[in-house]
């Protein structure tokens, strides 16, 4: 007799607040940990900038663990509206019930709220982000006529990849200037090798070959590739190698095919892989 609500639930409750109990492995790249802590202590929102797969998500998990706060992550997509963030009414058994969206839950719980790839979301999301991100720290829940004041523990974190979005998809200055920005780049060679080794358990020689391969692909950015191989892809390749797959097949599957579909580019990447080991 009731409306089937399953698809709806799964849509608006994607990210449960997570308490991270085990220390996630995170290799600091600079002073980002101190910067983040200082920003949170001053109740300033944070913007993480950087290319894909360079450790932004891992960093935020680590910080949630370190600060002992629950983490709510929302992966933004081009259909994500303000209502998806704030919440909406549902109908059950002849009744309307209000369900908080992830942002509202984060405010109520004093959690870290991580909006991943914010530029993908609809423009109207800025309406709720702006008052939360300046010194008012308020979340208007319009449909219920509520105005939530965020507790000091609440922290808003956005991520944003300035690399391959066109100028047209840029973050507006009025949004940008509300945030303390932390820039992530690909780690230095030695750091990146450490990360690959700890994540995959591979040996030093493999890790260093993979980092050199990454360097070659990063040199092709703008000359046939949109983006070079990220740390993530190197970790993937290392894991395949650790399972006994040959280095060339591992790099082909985990790196080359992830970067391009162009046959000549794929051949070039394979040649790189053949040359770095």
């Amino acid at each position: 007799m009731t409306a089937t609500l399953t698809p709806l639930h799964s849509k608006i409750l994607p990210a449960e607040a997570r308490i991270i109990e085990q220390q996630p492995y995170y290799q600091p790249l600079g002073d980002e940990v101190a910067l983040f802590e200082a920003a949170c202590a001053n109740q300033l929102p944070v913007l993480l900038k950087g290319p894909t797969g360079c450790g932004k998500t891992r960093f935020i998990e680590y910080m949630a663990w370190r600060l002992k706060r629950p983490l709510i992550t929302v992966a933004c997509h081009d259909d994500l509206t303000a209502a998806d963030l704030v919440g909406r009414y549902l109908i059950t058994n002849n009744e309307t019930t209000w369900i908080d969206g992830p942002l509202t839950r984060a405010v109520r719980a004093g959690a870290l709220c991580y909006l991943d790839e914010i530029v993908e979301a609809r423009r109207d999301t800025t309406v709720v982000i702006h008052p939360l991100a300046d010194d008012r720290r308020m979340l208007p829940v319009e449909k219920r006529g509520e105005l939530l004041q965020a507790p000091p523990e609440f922290a808003l974190v956005l991520s944003y990849n300035p690399g391959y979005q066109s100028v047209l998809k840029d973050l507006k200055p009025s949004t940008r200037q509300r945030f303390v920005a932390i820039e992530f780049r690909y780690p230095e060679a030695a750091t990146e090798e450490t990360i690959i080794r700890s994540e995959s358990g591979c040996d030093a020689a493999t890790a260093s070959a993979l980092v050199r391969l990454a360097q070659l692909t990063r040199n092709l950015k703008g000359n046939g590739l949109d983006e070079g191989a990220s740390t993530r892809l190197l970790v993937h390749a290392a894991k395949l190698i650790m399972r006994g797959v040959s280095p060339s097949s591992s790099c082909h599957g985990a790196i080359a095919e992830a970067l391009s579909d162009d046959p000549e580019m794929l051949r070039t990447l394979d040649e790189f892989a053949a040359s770095v080991f």
Binding site: N219, L220, N223, M265, T268, E271, F272
Partner: peptide, 15 residues
């Protein structure tokens, strides 16, 4: 030629 050009571009960091 194209593969070699890309290859060298990867080495040199510029075409």
């Amino acid at each position: 030629a194209n593969v070699l050009r890309l290859f060298v571009c990867g080495l040199a960091g510029r075409p």
